[in-house]
């Protein structure tokens, strides 16, 4: 039941569980290395193709949290804090509430050369009253499918608006 002061509209509720347009992510040796370098990874499987192959992988492995780089189209929304889509709410401030990754390595370890399709949906809207005032907590779920149609990972993200 929505409270009288709820910012969640019927239109928003109708979005829950609806998948957005799929996004293509490319996993390459260069961007795996860049990601690994920016975290400070030291394991050679993130940098050196020969080392990765020697450990039984197809190519350089995507480091934890790296699902590839979205194909960038000029003029379309750049990457930034996750924003609402198709609706607006009266809160101005946005916080990234957290991220969780789930991997399904039996379906394939993400490696350079993979093309990943990401499909996102809103799983829930939740309203609470916090120390910062009323908040809207939006949870999203993204499913990552590789070029063989296998689900290799999922991401659960929380956005807090207040």
């Amino acid at each position: 039941m929505a409270q009288a002061s709820s910012v969640v509209t019927d239109d928003m509720r109708a979005l829950v569980g609806v998948e957005g347009a799929p996004m293509t992510l490319e996993v390459e040796k260069t961007n795996c290395r860049m990601f690994a370098r920016s975290v400070g990874h030291t394991d050679a499987i993130y940098y050196d193709e020969a080392a990765a192959k020697a450990r039984g992988h197809r190519s350089i492995v995507a480091p934890p949290g790296f699902m590839g780089t979205p194909v960038f189209h000029p003029g379309q929304a750049p990457t930034g804090p996750a924003q609402s889509r198709g609706y607006s709410i009266p809160y101005k401030r946005v916080l990234n509430g957290g991220t969780e990754y789930e991997y399904f390595p039996e379906n394939g370890v993400i490696c350079a050369g993979d093309t990943i399709t990401a499909r996102s949906k809103i799983s829930a809207f939740e309203e609470t009253e916090g120390s910062l005032g009323p908040m809207l907590i939006t949870t999203r779920e993204t499913t990552y499918t590789n070029q063989d149609g296998k689900v290799v990972a999922k991401m659960y993200g929380t956005t807090i608006q207040y």
Binding site: V39, D43, P63, P64, G65, N96, G98, T99, Y101
Partner: peptide
Amino acid sequence: HGALKNAFLGQLLHD
């Protein structure tokens, strides 16, 4: 970046 700290935890676990 929050996501960088998340990735650090990924490294902690991977290592």
